[in-house]
C-alpha cells in the first residue's frame, strides 16, 4: 500500500488541484449549457422566421379562397382541402390494417425466426426514405394498376408508407401491456379477441395514438410521395363530384410550397 498511502488525501497541492478541477468542470458544464442554448436559439429562430413571415398573410380569406391571379393572390383552400383529403383517405386504409397488423405481430404471429426477420424489416421500413415509397407508388399504383396520378394512387402510396409506423407502434404498445393482465383476462374465461379488445387495447391506446400522430405527420409532411403520385400544381376543373375528384390529381400544401420554392 506504499504508493497508495504516500498519495495522502489532504494537502495544499490537492486543495489547489480541487479548485482547478471544479473550475474546469464549471467551464465544461457552462459550455454544454451554451451549446444547448444555441440549439434552442436555432429552433426558436426557425419557427419564429416562418411564423413571422407567414402570419401576416394568414386570415380567413387566405384559408378559404383558391389561389388567384396566377398564384400571386387569393388563398390556399384547394391545397388545404387536398392535403386533408389525402390524409383522411390514407388513414381510412392504413389504420384498420395497421392496427390489426400490429395485433397480429404482437399476439398472433408467435416469435419464430421468420417473424423476427419480418419485424426487423418493418422496423427499418418505418425509417425508409419517403422517396422510395414515392417510386414504389408510381410504379405499382400509378403505372401498373393504371390509377394515374390521382388521389387514389396517393392514398395507397401514403398508406403503404404509414403502415409500418402504425404496425410498429401498435405492436410495441401491446407488448408493453403486462403479461399478468393478459393472463388474468384468459383466466376469467375471456376469448382471445375479448382479451385484446377489453384488456390489452385500452391500455395500449396512448402508445397507438402516438404512433398514429407520428404516421400522420409523416403522411402529411413528406412531400415526395404526394408530389409524385397524387400531385398537381393547379387543377382547372372547378366543380366536380367526389369520384371525379379522387380519380384526378389534387393540389396539396407540400406541392404548393415546393413549386413556390423551385
Amino acid at each position: 500500500m506504499d504508493a497508495l498511502t504516500s498519495l495522502g488525501n489532504h494537502n495544499e497541492l490537492l486543495t489547489k488541484r480541487d479548485s482547478k478541477r471544479s473550475l474546469w468542470s464549471g467551464v465544461g458544464v457552462a459550455a454544454i449549457g451554451l451549446v444547448t442554448l444555441f440549439v434552442i436559439a436555432i429552433i426558436l429562430f426557425l419557427i419564429g422566421t416562418i411564423i413571422l413571415r407567414g402570419a401576416p398573410s394568414v386570415n380567413l380569406g387566405f384559408l378559404s379562397q383558391p389561389p388567384l391571379e396566377n398564384m400571386t393572390a387569393g388563398g390556399i383552400w384547394p391545397q388545404i382541402r387536398g392535403t386533408l383529403l389525402l390524409i383522411g383517405g390514407t388513414f381510412l386504409i392504413a389504420l384498420p390494417i395497421g392496427i390489426l397488423g400490429g395485433i397480429f405481430l404482437a399476439e398472433y404471429a408467435g416469435s419464430s425466426r421468420l417473424i423476427g426477420l419480418v419485424r426487423g424489416l418493418i422496423t427499418s421500413l418505418a425509417g425508409t426514405p419517403s422517396i422510395i415509397y414515392a417510386l414504389f407508388g408510381l410504379a405499382v399504383f400509378v403505372l401498373i394498376l393504371k390509377l394515374n396520378i390521382s388521389v387514389i394512387a396517393g392514398w395507397l402510396t401514403l398508406a403503404t408508407m404509414a403502415l409500418p409506423v402504425i404496425v410498429l407502434s401498435t405492436e410495441q404498445a401491446l407488448k408493453a401491456v403486462p403479461n399478468s393482465q393478459i393472463e388474468a383476462g384468459y383466466a376469467l374465461g375471456m376469448t382471445r379477441w375479448q382479451v385484446m379488445s377489453k384488456v390489452a387495447l385500452p391500455q395500449a391506446m396512448p402508445g397507438i395514438i402516438t404512433g398514429i400522430i407520428l404516421a400522420s405527420g409523416r403522411a402529411a409532411g413528406e412531400a415526395p410521395p404526394i408530389i409524385i403520385t397524387a400531385g398537381i400544381y393547379f387543377r382547372t376543373e372547378k366543380e366536380m363530384g367526389f369520384l371525379e375528384l379522387i380519380r384526378g390529381a389534387t393540389e396539396s400544401l407540400p406541392l404548393h410550397i415546393t413549386e413556390g420554392l423551385r
Binding site: M1, D2, A3, L4, L7, N9, L14, R17, R21
Partner: peptide, 23 residues
Amino acid sequence: GPRAHYGIRGSKLDQVVEEALNA
C-alpha cells in the same frame, strides 16, 4: 479516481491500481 485526484500517470498509476486490487 487517482488520475483525477492526484494527476498520476504511467508506472505510478499502474502501481496504485495494483495495490488497490491487492487491498
